[in-house]
Design a binder for these strands. Structure first.
Length: 470
DNA sequence: ATGTGC
């Protein structure tokens, strides 16, 4: 394996063709990587229509076919799309809400607020909410996204301005989402799920960039709320079915396939089109889901603080494939950008970000591991040139779920976090153990790399006060 | 991530 540092924090992996493979990380993060990550990146570089460079963010680790923290762009005409390149939890993402409260408002009611949130926001494996949808309503949700949720009474019109794509993925087609996928989602709207998904009440503990913080509406000691979840059962079902179909597609045509999990279809093919539209529908499911949870959070806060409004800072996904335009060899080209465990990170003056954030760049919401820091970053000036407008998404695992389960105890973790002033409410001790902070990389180190490279810049650091887990 | 398994 030939790998060399071509610039500070940029490592290039030698591939057999003309496609560059670039890993954005430091020496310590590089040394911690399993070799499967390199093989997975090499495999992507062999796919038809891939546009150089294939990128890995500093929180990268091996995944299903594609590594987590992987970014790969494909030519709209000659390229391919891969369900494994988006991942199982389509449009998993983070949404952060601003409150007008400060630390001293929360501390006296910390336990009660935790109970209230835990009671109102369903979480855990197979969690169901109070909302029940018919197939017809599921279809409307899959087309309308967050807008649909707001029309149902979950939130305010103004929220839409602060969601990627204005809250609606425009090319969604529910006809390409199976009945089984829809069935799974009938009772799951407004639920958090499990795994690394969470709802946190956090305090702004440090501000790195005063000007951008002001534009984002952030101040020291302010309370914010972050919601990390995705498209639940529906997204998982869509991903599973299309991965299987893409395996069949590639096998039937005897297309070169270095890794079965990397199955793909040409973007222009019938299957490629179908997957793209179904994936867009799943994005809408995730956006609607986070919108409903927002409403539940707002009502919980209003029980303690009558009449306050929790404004939306931003909502951004980190498992998607999007159609975006980039300069390739001096020409503007439409590309399909896979981001799997990578966040869109559009910098200042990008026309696709809200007017309010034009000067700062889009908010980039980075969840740390449970009980550790989270970061609010701003889209950087260099993401456009280096990483197809992308940056990291979180800490990234260093230990498998299974290993973490064996190594840590959920009960011990809770008491440890309590001692650090963090109130935890979870549905499963096993689930908590899987998310032990030591099973993850140091999020601060990950963020530092993106800051140094100008993929995204540090605006604020958040410390959790309340953690709600599945 | 996931009605936590093919």
């Amino acid at each position: 394996m030939q790998i060399k540092e071509i610039e500070n924090n940029i490592f290039e992996l030698k591939s057999s063709n003309k496609v560059n493979i670039r890993l954005f990380l430091d020496k310590k993060l590089l040394d911690a990587l399993e070799s499967t990550v390199f093989q997975q990146l090499l495999n992507i570089a062999e796919l038809p229509g891939v546009i150089s460079p294939v990128c890995a963010m500093p929180d990268t680790h091996s995944g299903y076919g594609f590594p987590i923290g992987g970014v790969a762009a494909f030519d709209a005409e000659e390229g391919v799309i891969s369900a494994g390149g988006v991942g199982f939890d389509i449009a998993c993402g983070v949404r952060t809400l601003l409150t007008p409260l400060s630390l001293r408002d929360i501390l006296p009611i910390q336990e009660d607020l935790a109970d209230e949130l835990f009671q109102r926001v369903p979480a855990g494996v197979g969690s169901k909410g109070d909302i029940k949808l018919s197939f017809k309503e599921v279809d409307k949700m899959l087309v309308g996204g967050a807008r649909w949720a707001i029309e149902q009474g979950f939130g305010e019109e103004i929220d839409l301005q602060f969601i990627e794509d204005d809250g609606v993925a425009k090319e969604a087609n529910p006809d390409f989402v199976s009945k089984k996928a829809k069935e799974r989602q009938k009772y799951e709207m407004g639920t958090l799920g499990a795994g690394n998904h969470y709802l946190e009440v956090q305090v702004v503990e440090e501000i790195f960039d005063l000007e951008k913080a002001k534009i984002f509406g952030l101040s020291l000691n302010q309370i914010v709320v972050s919601i990390h979840c995705g498209s639940r059962g529906l997204g998982h079902q869509v991903a599973t079915e299309y991965m299987q179909e893409m395996v069949k597609y590639t096998q039937k045509r005897k297309l070169s396939l270095p890794d079965k999990n990397l199955a793909y279809a040409p973007i222009k093919s019938e299957l490629g089109r179908r997957y793209f539209s179904a994936m867009q529908a799943a994005i809408n499911c995730a956006l609607a889901n986070r919108q409903i949870i927002t409403h539940l959070v707002r009502s919980a806060f209003n029980k303690f603080f009558k009449g306050i409004f929790l404004a939306l800072l931003y909502d951004v996904s980190h498992n998607t494939c999007r159609k975006e335009v980039y300069e390739v060899k001096g020409k503007l080209k439409e590309l399909y950008v896979h981001r799997k465990g990578a966040t869109r990170s559009f910098g200042p003056r990008n026309k696709f970000i809200p007017f309010k954030y034009q000067k700062a760049g889009q908010p980039v919401l980075i969840g740390g591991s449970m009980g550790t820091f989270s970061y609010i970053l701003a889209g950087g000036d260099n993401s456009d040139k280096l990483s197809f407008g992308s940056t990291c998404h979180g800490a990234g695992r260093v230990m498998s779920r299974n290993q973490a389960k064996k190594t840590y105890s959920g009960k011990n973790l809770i008491s440890k976090l309590n001692k650090a002033g963090i109130v935890v409410r979870g549905h499963s001790y096993k689930g908590l153990a899987e998310e032990a902070p030591s099973a993850y990389k140091d999020v601060s180190r990950v963020v530092e790399v993106t800051h140094n490279l100008g993929l995204s810049t540090k605006v604020a650091r958040l410390r959790p006060l309340i953690v709600i887990k599945g």
